[in-house]
């Protein structure tokens, strides 16, 4: 675990994958960041009903594996549900993947991959 100490030092941004309202709100809080050109990468992805699952998958992969400056990935639960396999298989401590509720989809603790593990550990 000590080896990861160096890798999480420079993680300082949050990333969002969410519907428009969630992303707008979180950007208002000031988490939005666009890296310097030429490869100006955004740390957020707006997902609507027309967005392909593969695109979400790609963004998730990008945030979790390729970019080394992201500490927390926030993802709407109903979107996490669409790429449930990737979310469940991602078990590294960094970045932390957090499932958040959205306006239209109330939070369901039963579906959360981390809470599922918590529940399982307590044998419920």
């Amino acid at each position: 675990m000590a080896a990861s100490a160096a890798t999480y030092k420079d993680r300082q941004f949050l990333a969002v994958i969410g519907d428009e309202d969630s992303v707008t709100g979180l950007l208002l809080a000031g988490i939005g960041h666009v890296t310097d050109p030429p490869d100006s990468q955004r740390n957020f992805l707006v997902v609507d009903s027309k967005t392909e699952t593969s695109e979400i998958e790609r963004a998730f992969e990008n945030f979790t594996q390729e970019r080394k400056d992201i500490a927390v990935v926030l993802i709407n639960q109903h979107i996490a549900e669409r790429i449930r396999h990737s979310v469940d298989t991602f078990a590294d401590p960094f970045p932390a993947v957090l499932e958040i509720p959205s306006k239209d989809h109330p939070y369901d603790p039963e579906k959360d991959s981390v809470l599922k593990r918590v529940r399982r550990l307590f044998g419920e």
Binding site: Y8, K9, R11, Q12, F13, L14, E20, D21, V23, T24, L27, L28, A29, G30, I31, G32, H33, V34, R42, N43, F44, V46, A71, V72
Partner: peptide, 18 residues
């Protein structure tokens, strides 16, 4: 205002430190 906000986001104001 979503579109406007998404376009104007440039630098993160809210950051985390570990």
């Amino acid at each position: 205002i979503g579109y406007q906000i998404q376009e104007s986001a440039k630098q993160a104001r809210f950051r985390v430190r570990s």
